[in-house]
Design a protein around this nucleic acid. Structure first.
Lengths: 147, 147
DNA sequence: TATTGTTATACTCTATAACTATA
DNA sequence: TATAGTTATAGAGTATAACAATA
């Protein structure tokens, strides 16, 4: 029985889709959308950020950030604070409720990872990660060739 | 150096995101959106389908399918044919252009898979797929417990 | 009476372009 | 002159609810 490259890729994508479905359950349970969660995650990771920085980090337009922040201010997850040195800019900051949400997100992610990979042999994990690293490195090579 | 389960999961997701980015390049090169590609892929896999069936397969509302099919009829990728036995229903069918597009999609996917996994040792591939299968099986267990 | 697809309406995410306030 | 964010406008994807034609 030979395993084709396409089969391997499809299994990776199947796993990823299941993880995505899990995230969506978390989101709808908290009446939150993916775009807003992404923004909260970013602010949680980078700390208070200007909308400009968030637009760059999320790869969307500044106008889009305005709308997402509007929604998250409305739901009480973030606040707009004045920038200490640049009066044009605002700093998007997590509220207590926003911090709680991000903490829940992180722990839900860690829980899932632990239940998926926590019981596997150390050797198996090592080999698995090695293969992933090889593949990710190969992607970088492809991008160089492609562009 | 210990590898945490979260690190493993994040690498899987990183690979998946790169694949997704590759798909998006393909889509924008063909002036196509993910939702429409998904519908075309489904029709390619299942053959001519009612809009009802497509709604169920894609997990979206029937109304949504109406809009997607409208767009794909406009771009010439599908046509609405009358259902042979049920006069309420329409059958969404690939045109020649739609079939070409799906064929391109399949070969692009296979190409990427070959470049990512084609040169790896057979042993490494076997171990990798085994771990993926273990993890996917574990997901099924989680879902049973969860619901 | 139930089902298929459409019209009506609305919300979220996304984009570009023009504008205001600052730098 | 350039930059940060907003208003204006538009389009795609998504949803529910009401309705027509057909089963």
């Amino acid at each position: 029985m030979t395993t084709t490259p396409t089969t391997v890729l499809d299994k990776v994508l199947a796993l990823s889709m299941l993880v995505t479905a899990d995230q969506q359950r978390f989101e709808s349970a908290h009446q939150m959308t993916s775009a807003r969660v992404h923004l909260l995650w970013q602010v949680g990771a980078a700390g208070p950020s200007t909308q400009r920085d968030l637009a760059a980090a999320l790869g969307v337009s500044p106008r889009n950030i305005t709308g997402l922040v509007d929604g998250l201010v409305g739901s009480g997850h973030v606040s707009r604070e004045s920038h200490p040195t640049d009066r044009r800019a605002t700093q998007v900051t997590l509220t207590a409720s926003g911090s709680d949400f991000v903490a829940g997100l992180v722990s839900s992610h860690a829980d899932l990872a632990a239940r998926l990979f926590g019981d596997l042999d150390a050797d198996r994990i090592t080999a698995f990660v090695e293969t992933l690293d090889l593949t990710l490195a190969r992607f970088a090579t492809l991008v160089e060739e492609g562009s």
